[in-house]
Design a protein around this nucleic acid. Structure first.
Lengths: 219, 219
DNA sequence: TATACTAAGTGTATAATGAACACTAAGTAT
DNA sequence: ATACTTAGTGTTCATTATACACTTAGTATA
């Protein structure tokens, strides 16, 4: 390999989304080392020998969340020569969706170096992570409108009103209940479980689930 | 940098599309060196010191085509550990669109190590380039259906029938003339030039152009 | 135990959009 | 003058999207 060519470090950085308290949130890690020590950042890590990018992304995800089998896709690759002040580092950004219920850390019990931040109130972030996260939010919002990508944020079984609420939080707008139900059922992606959710002082709701845990596109 | 981390070579590889002879074609280069010597491959090259990914992609594009100011976007990053048999190389793939008329090499005068291959009849390709190109074609076809991305393939001024033909070639299907015209004009992205194309033994056609040379989304 | 409260669940009418379809117009060639 | 070629134009019908309000089935409480 000629020295005129770059041989940068490669990282994967993850935009890990969840919804809690009716807000779209993203996981942030407080950096323990320089540069940007004590600054919030996206969870990420260097690519290891022999590891594919997807493997690296899944490894980092599992390290930080303890969760496997979540929806994840490659987002974009950021390679500005000055994005890391130390040396050349190229990062391949991924975005992942996790149902809040599958995380073992309830919001109260948050550790000091990990937080879930609402996407419309991000703190100062290390490197170019604000650019990356804003790009990820844009992609998630766009994709929510023409696919069933929200399945990645749902528990296995859910009420239609919960599903509607997820959509509303992501696209940040209200939807009509009857039209939403008609459209969702018309996609053929949902099925009744037969079970009912009997919590709350009101009529019980049918619980639904996705037939396949796969992304599908509408239109 | 710790040795357990990868410091791979980084390349950019380009899916450069054009349309000629009513076919969607992609540029291929015959490799002069091992591995895959004498095998067709995507145009590409190693990232140079201090160069951003976009700069590298534009540099390679300009080296191969002599053309600047074309539509280009990042496609995907491919990082399988075994994708290059020599050593670890990660490639950031881009796709670019070039109007056939802007290329200075007419099809007759093709050089031996460069060709334009129809996308539905690709030869054997080096590395994972067939996977990358098929992915690029998929993206182009999808994007053609909900954006004006074809502007990247059009000359500055064109007949509506030419524009329709471009769409038909990309999506590989016939469109209704009257509906196509209605819809395209309804986007508000086109404007009449006032000039007419008087070639051919038939009624002259109004020449149109895009108001802005920017990608815009329908729906 | 009647009444209030809450979220679940359901249908219709109207507007907007998409799809199918055929002839006339304005040139050139013979 | 006639044939030929591509340009250019509207309407009807089907489908889809939108707006909108009441009844149902449970729990809580007075």
């Amino acid at each position: 390999m000629n020295t005129k060519y770059e041989q940068p470090g490669i990282t994967v950085d993850l935009a890990i989304f969840t919804i809690s308290n009716n807000k779209l949130k993203v996981m942030l890690i407080k950096r323990a080392e320089e540069p940007f020590r004590d600054t919030w950042s996206m969870p990420g890590g260097f690519l290891l020998h022999g590891e594919s990018l997807e493997e690296a992304a899944h490894r980092v995800l599992c390290e930080k969340t303890g969760v496997k089998n979540v929806y994840m896709e490659q987002l974009y690759t950021f390679g500005d020569p000055k994005r890391d002040p130390r040396s050349r580092v190229i990062t391949v950004a991924y975005f992942a969706l996790i149902p809040w219920k599958e995380l073992d850390q309830p919001e109260s019990q948050k550790v000091a170096d990990l937080t879930w931040s609402a996407v419309d109130g991000l703190p100062k972030l290390a490197f170019d992570h604000k650019i990356i996260l804003n790009y990820a939010v844009k992609r998630l919002r766009a994709k929510a409108s023409y696919s069933n990508i929200v399945y990645g944020l749902m528990p296995k079984q859910f009420r239609l009103s919960e599903l509607q609420s997820m959509y509303e939080i992501i696209i940040n707008d209200k939807l009509d209940k009857r039209n939403f139900r008609k459209q969702m059922l018309a996609t053929g992606l949902l099925e009744e479980t037969g079970k009912k959710d009997i919590t709350g002082a009101h009529r019980p709701a049918m619980l639904y689930q996705f037939k396949k845990m796969e992304i599908a596109f509408f239109n």
